[in-house]
Structure formats: C-alpha cells, structure tokens
Design a protein around this nucleic acid. Structure first.
Lengths: 244, 244
DNA sequence: ATATAGATATCGTGT
DNA sequence: ACACGATGTCTATAT
C-alpha cells in the first residue's frame, strides 16, 4: 500500500494547482464536531486546489453531503489488489477526519483553472444602508441623517437620524428582519436612552423583508418597521433637495 | 440557435437523471435577491438531477461562487458559430436568473448516480437534549426531569426540571451558546415566572461551547451556564440509580 | 488570533 | 405553503 499526498501542503513545488473530479461508488465517514456516515452509493468527489474535499450526491442543491474544509491534508491509500477499496483520509488540524472508502472509480480527471477574478456583489446589507442614508425622505419629510455607523459600547448603530421634530431615532438596517434584529435594536435603544444628551431615542427597523414574529415583537416594543425597496432607494430623493 | 431543456421539468420520460460536469471558461451573472457578476475564468459547472446549477472555482471550500437552487429550469442556447459563446439561462419561479456565458468548453461529461441512501448524523442539538434529559446528575445531585419540550405560548422549553430544593428550572440546550440563546431563554423565563404555579423559575443555558458575550449576558441575568461534554453525557449516570 | 455580524445562507420540521 | 429554529453553518470585518 502506497501513500500519495494531494493537499496543498503535500503538493510538490513544480506541480500546478489542479481541480480533481472523481465519480465513484463510495462510502463516507466524518468524525469531528459531530459524527456522520454515508452508506455506499455513487457520488462526485470534488478535490480543489485549496485542499478541500467535498462529496456531492445528485441532489441537495449546491451543498455537499459531506466535506472537509481547508486547510486540510488528503492522503490516498491506493488499494493493494483490484478488488480491495481505496481509502482517502482527509484531516485538518482540529482533529476532524473525513474517510472516503472508494469501491469503484467511474471517472477521474484533473483540470487547471488558473486565477479566479472573484465575485462582485451588489445589493447586500451594506448597500441598503448606504442607499437609505441618502434617502431620509423614505423615513419621513424633514428627516436628517446624523451619521452612519454611530458608535456605542456594544457596537455601531447603522444609522442615527433626527426626525422633523428634532427627535433622535436609531435605525437598524437588515436585508431580512428577524427576531434577533429586534433584540439588537432594543439593546442599542436601551443604551442610547441612558445618554441624557440623546434621550429620548426611538427606533426604526428597516428591511427588505419582515418575518412576522419580528414585526410583532418590534411593534410591541414601539419600534417602527419600514419596508425598503432596493430599486426605489436607488432613485434620487424627490423632496426639493435636487439641484435640477 | 436551438434550445435544449436540461432541468427536471424539461427532462424526457425515458431519460435518466444524470449529473453533468462541465469545465469551461465562462462568465456568470446572477440577478435575484441581489445582483452578482463573475468575470471570465475557468470554472466547474455542476448540473445536478434536481435541476440545480452551481459554479465552482478552484477555492472557497465547498461553497460555489454562484448558483441557482432547485426547483429551476436550465435552457442551453447552443452557439450558432464555433466562435460564438454558448449561453445557459437558469431561472426559478421567484424571478431569479443565473446566466452563464460559456466561452470555451474544456470538459463535458454526464454520470448516473442512482439513489442516495442519505446522511446519518449523530451529535446534533437534539441528541444533546435527549442525552442531558437522562443525565440530570450533570446539573446537580437530586435534580429531576419534569419534561422535555415543555410547551409555552412562545414555543417549547427544551427541558423543564426541578432542583434538589424542588425549585423549577428551565433549561435551554444549544450546541453553541450565543447571545440570542440567552435572549430566547430570558423570554421563556419571563413568561414562566408569570405562572404562579411554577414561579419562581430559574434558568440554565447548557451548551458544548459558549461565546464569551453569551456567558457574560447570561451571568448578568442570573442564568447559570453549564458546559456539556458529549462523550460524558453518553455514559450512564453514576448516582446510585444504576441497576448494577 | 479572536470575536462579531451578515448571508442569494441552506435545510428540516411542524403548523 | 409558510414560518421557525438548527447548522460540522461559512465568510468577511473589526479589534
């Protein structure tokens, strides 16, 4: 039985980074944060240049059935006889181990990918916050931004604003408002209301979507819920502040 | 230009469910919950029988750079000339769309996987709760279980127990205790303490791991933190209740 | 290195 | 179908 390294650590100097695709009848065992087992079946074994190994079935969307995240080391035990299974042992430093028992290889290929330029995203929470910051008219006429990321002892408040009556309002921005967003804003409000220079401070939870429980809890606590529309936020404010 | 269906919906009656592996130089655009773009590079396109498509780079562990979750339909526009790119359009019912522009195909294969027996897990939160329920000695001598999943108006309390002095205790079990676990238990305690038949009710947060903030907040609110050891919980209680 | 917050989170379960 | 909680969450950011 011979061993062959295939993780990043084991790759030789002149060797290129390759993605390896193996289709095989295999069984899989994981032992780490929990224990998990996969009975024998045909699956895709995806070995990336970062050393990660993932085991995909023909389903469950993009999530593999089992995997080992990098950095980890793969040791492949080649079978002695044609009938004996091969064994892949993938381990990381935290003592987690993934063992793939390969009974039959149906496909095995390697591919060079080269550099990945990376994903460009638009419309995440940070974008919502930035867009809302310049659209105070969405909250009400005469509202003004005090500042974004207003610092407190327990973390920054997304937006601190003043309403038309000069009252202070803390705004928490979420893509989806859930119950812990309400709790988070409640903690900020509790803290800000201890500051006699700011108090009384009211709260607004602003999000593209609201979970019903979040809306109920927010309303119960006197927190206003504002639904954000990404496309509408991208438009310029129509409140007389335009230059044309 | 001809169209060819490849999603579950478009698959013909006699056709088998196949996993398709394509390695290609491609660019990708997603428009849905947010917008995302991938410049041209070599990547793996993984098309599963459930209709899902995922775009993997040689990195970022098991997560694809971009994807479309099932149920969705893939329409492949075959290029008219050899130099023109092929275009894959993947759409779901929610109006989300993933467009893959395929500039050069380096590999294209299909594989039949057959049935997936499924993953067997051991050591998740439900297991912790079940194991702790029969190991009340871990909480203290003379403690007894009242019931698991004790129902309240805002959801079930993991464990309701009585301490040696017959005081009622609500136990929240987590694999990892975070701040929202403390908030959750706090809400339960607030509710249970309104019940004159139960009050006073104290709280225990039991978890394999504790985030420091969770421990601080719990302690501040008089909630006891108990660290759970999965292996120790599996042993039988050593409190005289054994039969041997 | 550690802790915190966001995510196209995904996935299973109960109503 | 919808909502909610768990996840081997994972990943990027700030301290």
């Amino acid at each position: 039985m011979s061993d062959r390294g295939a993780g990043r650590g084991a790759r030789g100097a002149g060797e290129d980074a390759l993605v390896r695709l193996v289709v095989a009848r295999c069984s899989v065992d994981y032992r780490g944060r929990l224990a998990a087992h996969l009975p024998i079946a045909t699956r895709l074994l995806l070995v990336k240049a970062d050393g990660s190994v993932s085991v995909h079935s023909d389903g469950s969307a993009y999530k593999p059935l089992n995997w080992m995240s990098p950095p980890c080391a793969l040791v492949e035990e080649v079978p002695v006889t044609d009938v004996a299974p091969g064994v892949w042992r993938v381990a990381n430093r935290g003592g987690e181990e993934l063992v793939v028992t390969v009974h039959e290889v149906l496909h095995d290929s390697r591919h060079e990918f080269g550099a990945e330029p990376g994903l460009v995203k638009d419309g995440v929470e940070a974008d919502l916050q930035r867009l809302l910051a310049r659209r105070m008219d969405v909250l009400g006429p005469g509202w003004r931004l005090v500042r974004r990321e207003y610092p407190t002892a327990i973390g920054p408040v997304d937006l601190l604003v003043r309403d038309a009556a000069d009252g202070t309002v803390a705004v928490e921005v979420k893509r989806r408002a859930e119950i812990d967003g309400v709790e988070q804003l409640t903690r900020y409000l509790e803290l800000l209301n201890r500051d006699s220079l700011l108090a009384p401070v009211s709260g607004i939870l602003a999000a593209q979507e609201f979970r019903p429980q979040a809306r109920v809890l927010a309303t119960d606590r006197g927190i206003r819920c504002v639904v954000l529309d990404l496309d509408a936020l991208r438009e310029l404010p129509d409140d007389g502040t335009r230059l044309f």
